[in-house]
Amino acid sequence: MAFSNEQLERYARHIILKEIGVKGQKKLLNGSVLIIGAGGLGAPAAMYLAAAGVGTIGIVDADVVDLSNLQRQIIHAMKDIDKPKVISAKETMEEMNPDVKVNAIQAFVSSENILELIEPYDFIIDGTDNFPAKFLINDACVMAKKPFSHAGIIRFKGQLMTYVPGQGPCYRCVFHEPPPKNAVPTCKEAGVVGAMGGVIGSLQAMEAIKYLTGVGDLLAGRLMTYDAIKMEFRTIKLPHDTSTCPVCGENPTITELIDYEQAACELK
């Protein structure tokens, strides 16, 4: 595959990087990423991956665009209100970069569809806003041996970690099981600064780009936290013994996907 002059110009700043170059840009164009959730995290992640020329991007979300989303979900605009988020996201991404094929999937993820959804993709980004989905994505990615980026944001804080099969703990190693409904505040009730999605979602896009190009060290075996009030990033080393984990451990007890119940207030 030879680059067109337009592609050379579009990707010039990637190609001149020693770590990416022509080869890395080809890897991006041949790569695929599935973004689950077209919200605060998914919006910036999707935009940066589309701009970077990731050849195939899937985006999954069941919701339609609401005025209250526009404070942070920068992939959507006023004209998109009431439109399915995945359609709005697809339109923005395709306007940004015609090299990218966007698969828009308007659905909730569940034990029924998740394995089928993640199967065609190289890397998964969890941009969901609830624990049942986060545990479902983790378990499915462990079972299907897919790398993924977990992230969460609330108020002025965010966290992320990357799971790579065989390279350290999964989300369940750290957090075991979803907290009971309403035990832990969500960003819907506690609020979140819109730019938090930009910070953390962009880091998720960065992890996908690094995974696809093979550049640098991924956030595997580490949890990164960001506190915007203190303006502090920390990287916490996670225990590397995963042998007793119920899903990624040596003798898994969770061998089927679980649909945890969603807190009622989180469902529209």
Binding site: G40, T128, D129, F131, K157, P179, T186, K188, G197, I236
Partner: peptide, 11 residues
């Protein structure tokens, strides 16, 4: 000692 908090937002 490290505290690892649940952070579920993404919405």
């Amino acid at each position: 000692v490290e505290f690892l908090y649940f952070m579920g937002g993404g919405c």
